[in-house]
């Protein structure tokens, strides 16, 4: 421990929060967690709940693993990480079933599948195992935010174009429908989520040339 008095929000720590939003975004740059990004983004509400759930699981698991990092025997570290993640996921799932029943039905198995979300294991293994709890917490929040932002952008377009609503409120006026406008049924199907994610990646890379691989 060289620097004991590093400020809580030092430039280095803030970077942990901001980088995953942009140039090391877990979905668009590292291409992790795609499965759930495709599955739950039909409507905005489940996407927001999913993003929050992942944030809780990732931030807390990161902190727990970081606290335990000197005690965890390297030979069983992956199993220990999985136990911690599974614990958090079951906890979140149970709480949603009790307090947000409707949304938990929409998310169905995908809350449980947070366990298999590569972003979480990736951060535990790559960051929490070698850093102190506070940076690990920020790293968890940052990556969850990076994941959540993409989820919400995708869900926004899919709900708007696929169902004509935002957060289940009608935004496309009836006169449009009367004039022959129809909701795009394709947008509700998972393949279109992939296309939307692709467009986001395209936009991001054309603005940040350093992300483009040769």
């Amino acid at each position: 421990m060289s620097k004991e008095k590093e400020p809580l929000f030092s430039a280095k720590n803030l970077k942990l929060l901001s980088e995953p939003l942009g140039q090391s975004n877990p979905i668009t740059v590292q291409v992790l967690g795609i499965c759930s990004a495709l599955a739950v983004t039909v409507k905005l509400k489940p996407s927001i709940v999913m993003a929050l759930s992942v944030a809780v699981v990732l931030a807390v698991s990161n902190v727990v693993i970081s606290l335990l990092r000197k005690m965890i025997p390297p030979r069983i570290r992956i199993i220990v990480q999985l136990v911690v993640i599974a614990f958090m996921v079951i906890l979140v799932d149970q709480v949603l079933k009790a307090y947000a029943y409707e949304v938990s039905k929409q998310l169905s198995v995908f809350v449980g599948l947070i366990i298999t979300n590569c972003i979480i294991m990736g951060r535990l293994e790559a960051f929490a195992m070698g850093n102190r709890p506070w940076p690990a917490f920020l790293d968890g929040l940052g990556n969850a935010a990076g994941y959540g932002v993409i989820l919400i952008i995708v869900a926004f377009f899919r709900e708007l174009l696929g169902s004509g609503t935002i957060l289940d409120m009608k935004v496309i006026p009836q006169s449009f429908y009367d004039a022959g406008y129809v909701n795009n049924g394709m947008m509700i199907l998972p393949p279109m989520a992939l296309v939307v994610v692709g467009i986001i990646i395209w936009v991001q890379r054309s603005r940040r040339k350093n992300l483009i691989e040769d």
């Binding site: 025997p73 069983i76 911690v84 079951i90 149970q94 079933k97 307090y99 029943y101």
Partner: peptide, 29 residues
């Protein structure tokens, strides 16, 4: 020995916490 004890303790803590939460939330669910 350490590895065995560590896993045992970890799993026990997790199991106890989860059963407690599950018991508390069951009626609401």
């Amino acid at each position: 020995t350490y590895i065995f004890v560590f896993s045992l303790v970890l799993v026990t803590i997790v199991a106890v916490l989860l059963s407690f939460v599950s018991m508390k939330l069951k009626p609401i669910q």
